[in-house]
Write a protein that binds this DNA or RNA. Sequence first.
DNA 1: CTGTTAGCGCATTCAT
DNA 2: ATGAATGCGCTAACAG
Lengths: 340, 340
Amino acid sequence: MARAKRSTLVDVAREAGVGTTTVSRVINGGHYVEAKTLARVRAVMTRLGYQPNQAARALKGERTNTLGLIIPSLKDVFFASVADIAQKMTRKNNYVLILLVSDDDADQEIAELDVFQSHRVDGLLIVPPRKQTREFLASVKKLSVPLVAIDRPLLDPRASSVVANNYEAARAATQHLIEHGRKNILCVGGDPELYTIKERLRGYEEVMRANGLTPRSIMHINSTENAKSNLLPLLSERKGRIDAVFALYNIATVFTYETVLNMGRQIPDDVALLGFDDFDLSSKLRPTISVVRQPVDELGAAAIQLLFNRLAGGTDATFHLQIGTSLVLRESCGCPKAPL
Amino acid sequence: MARAKRSTLVDVAREAGVGTTTVSRVINGGHYVEAKTLARVRAVMTRLGYQPNQAARALKGERTNTLGLIIPSLKDVFFASVADIAQKMTRKNNYVLILLVSDDDADQEIAELDVFQSHRVDGLLIVPPRKQTREFLASVKKLSVPLVAIDRPLLDPRASSVVANNYEAARAATQHLIEHGRKNILCVGGDPELYTIKERLRGYEEVMRANGLTPRSIMHINSTENAKSNLLPLLSERKGRIDAVFALYNIATVFTYETVLNMGRQIPDDVALLGFDDFDLSSKLRPTISVVRQPVDELGAAAIQLLFNRLAGGTDATFHLQIGTSLVLRESCGCPKAPL
DNA sequence: CTGTTAGCGCATTCAT
DNA sequence: ATGAATGCGCTAACAG
């Protein structure tokens, strides 16, 4: 708390009786410096509590050692996990992460890109907004630092991206329900404009058709009320009675779970349930919920790695990584209860 | 992506046919600049896509417009929410937030304080580590920027802090269970070294004694296994059979829930359950779980506000804010089921 | 191996 | 109302 003036590189040089270059070298690894000098300078730095001023280094046109991250929200476990792994990887590379939350809004994300420009971050990891407006894409194009998109690809093909293989995941999930003998499988989703949702829906529909079954889906499920009023009629239909639900994102899974139980039907006996995205208490609900799990850490790590490769002067090539998912089979899909 | 050299203030000045001072003035609000000049300069800035270089401003000894946040983890909803509100408030003040995760480790947190010093953040919001070692406190003392502690007070009394009133919250919770006629109330907690846990335990014990009841507690519940093996024997005791549990943190609540149900007892009929800290699916579990809710947003907002007040040149006084909590009464405590 | 020096982009006196 | 000149702390030539 004591507002003491910080010591600078020059102070250190003076105290240690060396030139500024030497001190600079010590800061940056101590190469080409005599061991004795090195030790002396280091001692002085410690004594003075010297901390290099990143602003000055940045001004020299060097790196700011700063990465920017834009996610739609921190309250969503998935994105919080992305932020978590991103910050860990960033730190490991001796960088620091600036966090901006976009609320999934393109205009806000444009403003945030500006902020990052202003702060001269060395690279950017972003979850593109739901609607990638032309203005947004223009802003992206003007960026002068490497950028990697995560979770959803950027419409600008020149940007690298790391996403889960949503399509294959949905295929596997649907296939699994079919193998449990389910025939009237309903697909429950959120915003149909969203890339991930579209891909998942596509996978579901293809597998249904390939098995001679009729795909049925309902989108825009995003609240308890709306789940009840929209889902309930569908689930109550007599003919072609729905015997399974494939929910396209974690909240939809929970809403479906709630709605089904509230109408007095059994999971999985009456209605099997398989969700997309794992969530905290998936194994605490009764029955436990089977889900498609996205390897968030892998996604995040791969994305940050892409960024650092670029920063390390690697190729300028664009990568579009698709990461595989896995099925976590618990009880709700109809799989046997795991032994205690 | 196009690596174009960014235009600088000088470029703008040249293009606009004015001096650098004028441009600087425009950037900083445009006072004392003729309307016509102002418009012209602004136009040039837009055309060139000019973005002031924060590094340069910082170097001038001014602000970096950057705040630092240290939290133990992003995977904990509580801390994720702190980060969320912190970043929102920070942005609103035209600042930016750098996020560091400490894993609740003092040494790591010391290192992170250094990183923040190096990046010259203007202020710091931190969740102090579980164990505030002497070294850690020394590092804090050496800081030259305002710092506010959140969730747990800092042992250094010169630092401001914003915490929930854990003690009162625990009193109210315990009292509530007693009012439901419960007499053998067990308190289930985590790390007994933790400030929040200690305060909550203290509140619980006092109310128990004040009502002529015997407090009983078990700490270190932090995994499903350990919950089962430690909790089960206690809950199975015949005499003085436990008829309620007050769980001191969200995970403990879930572990208790799971353990009780697994042993075939009913909540709340056999064992009432009241938890500390709300969690995502608290109202989706059967029965729904009653909890003490901490107003995270209020906590975070108050803390950031304290920081900005200081930065605005406000008083240097130290504040120790205690924020009140509320009881969210659902079914697990014995309250009547809410009507659908 | 080591020291001297010239900017990086900006805010700021101090003039005008 | 505006401009010229200075320096913030550091790195990178360039000399020794």
